[in-house]
């Protein structure tokens, strides 16, 4: 067991990080985009012409999923799964795992919170479609924290040098 961990643990931890980054952030975004979609469907039933506007709001909380994918992809590149294989020590693997956590956790929760703000924004386009941008800005305020988490994940990942 110990031998297995020392020879494969690095890759395992790095992959676990990638799984969490893409998985959790993606789950959050899926949940959020879904809930905005439900609210949007209600508005579009009343006025099909508002589809475009509603769609704009719906895609907003989808970015966390993309950020998660982005970090996961960089991890795959880093540990050589997509190109020439590299040796990943247990310590390095664990570091990569930690680097993935900010976007995984913050991505998940911020997506859901942003989804709620965007769903509330849908009621803005129901009543005052000309104020759509304000609804978009409210939702985007939440995304700031996903952006910050992405940044930290990226900088951490970038700072880890594999021998």
């Amino acid at each position: 067991m110990l031998e297995f961990m020392t020879s494969n643990g690095g890759i395992l931890f790095a992959l676990l990080g990638a799984v969490l980054a893409a998985g959790l952030a993606g789950m959050g975004s899926a949940k959020a985009v879904g809930s905005v979609g439900e609210a949007a469907a209600g508005v579009v039933t009343e006025d099909p012409n508002k589809f475009g506007q509603a769609l704009l709001l719906q895609v907003l909380p989808g970015t966390q999923g993309l950020y998660g994918l982005l970090i996961a992809f960089l991890v795959l590149v880093k540990i050589g799964l997509l190109g020439d294989p590299v040796t990943v020590t247990l310590g390095n693997g664990f570091n990569i795992f930690l680097a993935c956590l900010p976007i995984a956790v913050v991505g998940y929760f911020s997506a859901i919170a942003q989804g709620r703000a965007a769903a509330a924004g849908v009621s803005i386009i129901a009543k005052r479609p000309e104020e759509l941008s304000k609804g978009m800005i409210f939702a985007a305020m939440v995304e700031t924290y996903a952006v910050l988490a992405l940044l930290i994940s990226f900088l951490m990942l970038n700072g880890i040098t594999l021998a």
């Binding site: 970015t63 993309l66 950020y67 994918l69 982005l70 992809f73 960089l74 700031t144 952006v147 910050l148 992405l150 940044l151 990226f154």
Partner: peptide
């Protein structure tokens, strides 16, 4: 303003994906 970096990375990394 760190979002200047984050969003330019997002464009570039997704493009490279």
């Amino acid at each position: 303003y760190s979002r200047l970096l984050a969003l330019s990375l997002a464009t570039a990394v997704i493009a490279s994906v």
